[in-house]
Design a protein around this nucleic acid. Sequence first.
DNA 1: GGGCTGCATGATAAC
DNA 2: TTATCATGCAGCCCT
Length: 845
Amino acid sequence: MGSMICMNELCRATTSVEWKKGWGFKSGGFAKLCYNCGSAFENLVFCETFHPDESGWRECRTCRKPIHCGCIASKYLYEYLDYGGVTCIKCARHLDGHSIRPIQIPGDDFPNGTLGSKSAQPLGIENKIDENDFERRKLMQTNEPGQLFQTQRNDKKQDTMLPIGNVGTCFSNLNQQNIGASLFGKPDNEGPSQGVKDMYESINQPSLNFCLSTPIGTSSSGQPFLGGDVEGREQSKTSPFQQGQRARHILPKPPKPSPTSGSESVKGMASQARIARPPAEGRGGRSQLLPRYWPRITDQELEKLAGDLKSTIVPLFEKVLSASDAGRIGRLVLPKACAEAYFPPINQSEGLPIRIQDIKGKEWTFQFRFWPNNNSRMYVLEGVTPCIQNMQLQAGDTVIFSRIDPGGKLVMGFRKATNNVDMQDPQTPNLPSGNGSGETSFSGMADNFPNGGRTSDDTVNRQVPMSEKKKARNIGSKNKRLLMHADDAMELRITWEEIQELLRPSPTAKPNIVVVEDCEFEEYEEAPVFGKRTIFTARSSGDQEQWAQCDCCAKWRRLPFHVLLPAKWTCSDNIWDSRRCSCAIPDEISPRELEALFRVGKDPKRRKLVDNNEDLESSGLDALATVAASDMGDSIGDMGEPSVGATTKHPRHRPGCSCIVCIQPPSGKGKHHPTCKCNVCLTVKRRFKTLMLRKKKKQSEREAELAQAKDQVPPKDEPEIDGMTSGIELLQMNHSENEHMNHSDNERNSNGDQVEEFGPGKGQLDLNCHPNRDDDMLAEATAGMSMTSLVNATNLPLEYLTQNRLESLGNSLLSQAASESEGHHPDNGFVKTADVEPGGKGAEA
DNA sequence: GGGCTGCATGATAAC
DNA sequence: TTATCATGCAGCCCT
């Protein structure tokens, strides 16, 4: 410890009779302070002593005690007040009494409390908790820019709070000082000495406070891992502008409300899984983590974790362990963006040791380092084998990195992939699988979707094979990325649509009207709030109306169609119908009529969802596969699981796919020799040759045009068709194509000449077609074309299709599309045809 | 000879 | 086309 230096920058003493611990780092460590500075810190007079002239001093609204907001040394000694300003922690504690604590924002990014004024409730004003209070708070919380979620540990209304945003992680919701003493079972960092420690603990006692997303403006979450130094990074600020963005980072699965069962739906929601976009923080703006790294969180986890203590958990990212991650090498590859955002910066390849606790409280030290890689870096955690083994993890399992605030200690949790059961919560069924493939199953979701959501059985049935599939497919492949089950996509779509329906402008918000391209937009500075769910119906006359259920008497009231209701609404709020503005007034129509009415009202919705689903599935290239596959007799169920049997090369291709990508041998094995004469190589060569010819033609044509332009007025712009295809030829081509598409099946079946029509033999089509033509053709294909039309659309010889039992048609279409998406020139879609050799055979690849 | 380290390569997704 | 990342592998070190 010879190199000890006091971390009070005004002191910087290198010697001290005794070294004391100061404020906590996000890494879990503590600032080293000399005796004097440490004593000042312990006595809570650090800022008074060393920062009296610095900016950031404010007064406690209650006791007028000066508080140095924005200083790390005081960051836990005050709280933001909902109505602005700050209060010292003592007063906050005193005021806390029976009220719901404001969400703790131990940050210093917003020292003036602007966030607190928006987000929390006035302390000491609302001490009585009643239902209305809760509802209103829910609304307020929803409205909170940072989308903080809060639970009240000992409150009977906890369930009521959950839907709004309780979260759970694989980590204990313990703050740094309490980790060791409770869940983790052993003392960790001793923390600052008693005075401060007591203060910290006092923060924690009254309630459980859980924060999923980064509280906007929290110092800890507003910046990356501190890594054992302060380096001034504590000063990094988050732009307030990001608040709104961050509010969207949480993707809670909203309920599919039931008009009759508010409480039930609330209960159901308690089991929702959440996908939390990690804090948009980090150095150099490299915080745009890919969704596959967003931590998935379930409410069950929170419930399990609802201990006596409070802390703010900031899930950072998660990663599905690859084979090499879980292998004996003991190197866990970290996603670059995550490593740079949440881990300490390292300049040397050898990196630095980093301490991470697992969920049992055991602390592990890994070497966080990087390798140079393609002008970039590849970050790894070395020495993870013991930890991996300790947690009995294997490839396919998910490790989740999170941070406990205050303190910023890194913790590492995990999810087992085999049965989707979290280690901490063996009863928790079907936790998100954790991979980014979209195979994540949201257990309990069906319960939340009584009217059209997936059923529980649905979930269960699908889940088992999903896990197996994931196991088989994820490991060692990037196919895990963002493959989303069609149902999941559908569900998300529904969810967002429903969210849109429920969003209301903040009651206090007044919009600015901005005009963009002659369209007026209302721009709100405050985040929207969730309103009350209503049912829309239509009379026989065609008039539309909506129905809302009173939150007090549960009676249904008819409302004008255009009305937007707040989250809490009662009969007394029914200003549109004075005859039914009281709970004492009976229902307008009988329950049976209501039921019938709502059934009618819901059916269109369901139909809409189905339509959406169809749209979803029939959009784009997948639609082609759908059309083709259904023509081929594939079951819908198969189509519902596009990932089934996807080849390792092409996620969207199936076994048997003969596209040029799928038939290639695995990486590193059986590479084709330069003299290889296989179909693949021949095709590639032909394509290359054709492309080169085309390129040359293009170039010479440009040169000719340039020379021509010098002499005379430039010719009229031609369509974007290069090479030999003139505009007239294009017309001919399109005409030919139309005819082609209108041919009867017999005609089409009878010849491969049509293929030749598009081939180079006619000198019209081949590589020089308009790229959009491809799309047109695809569009036609989606417009209910027949199987044979599809055949023609792809210009594949029927013989080829026959040989491949028609099965690969859809795949060919897909592969063609995939080739484009993989960066091939769009024209290449017809290279296949162009390369067709006389006789209709040719580039079967 | 086995294990470890560091880099290279190739597949894939993202841009 | 580029960036990222999973993994292969050569070379070195240790036993």
